[in-house]
Amino acid sequence: MLWLTWRQHRAQTLVTVVLIAGAALLLVLDAVPFVLVKTLPVVPVFVGLFWGVPLLAREYERGTDRLVWTQSVPRSRWLVVKFTVLGTAVVLAGLAFGAVVLGWTASADAPVDRFSDEVFGVSGVVAGAWFLAVFTLGAASGAVLRRMLPAMAVTTAVFAGLVVGAYLARGHYAEPEVALSGAHGMAVPADALVTGTGVVGPAGDLLSWDDAMSACAGAEPVGCMRDRGYEQQYTLYQPADRYWRFQWTETGLLLVIALVLAGVTARQVVNRSR
């Protein structure tokens, strides 16, 4: 089984190793253009497309599942070995990539810090969890749809949804700190994750910009805001030292998702007859 797994997936393994080495080299040389930094969160989807989807969809599409599941190795063992070996490889790849990105953000002239949306998901330990979750996502959609191209499309779409969900959820992993504007401007610490901005009401209540503006709908905004006593501005932020705590929170969430998707896959493979 180990030999079979290596033989069927060596292309992915070798390409992934080369790509991570290449990414490390680019980041070390600091030759990453801004446009590519912006697309860093997209990286895990390739794990889903090339490691996850073919795992089952390719067998079904080519009919090779009939051969492979009528050998002396039972289906359940086939799946357990494939998931364990490939899952471990994917997690290791993710952790390696995460370490490379984390090392790069620590360098002085990196354009983004490690807590920003662009790199949080592909740095540190959570990169491994993202790789694993998207791998199981690809495997599950391949097992359900049984064809590569639709499974790839579904993996891409669900992945985009997951990333947007993570962006929206990240601000809520802990109660944010509040910084108020003073004589010296806003005292938001460096490298913090800013999750919201707005104005402080007369009673000390915090209003988002949208709420404050809709209260002033129709009127000249600057004067109206002053009349209503919205003098001070605020920023909600998560301090930079919460990075590791957030990393483990998101890792936990993603591992639950990965577990559920692996369960779906196993159910499809073991229980469903052709």
Partner: peptide, 27 residues
């Protein structure tokens, strides 16, 4: 449409709230 009538910091905040997603457009 929600940005209609906004100015200054409020307009910037509204733009920034979606810029991360818009920056995926090259992909």
């Amino acid at each position: 449409l929600g940005a209609d009538g906004l100015t200054g910091d409020a307009l910037t905040a509204r733009f920034q709230s979606i810029y991360t997603y818009v920056s995926w457009l090259p992909a």
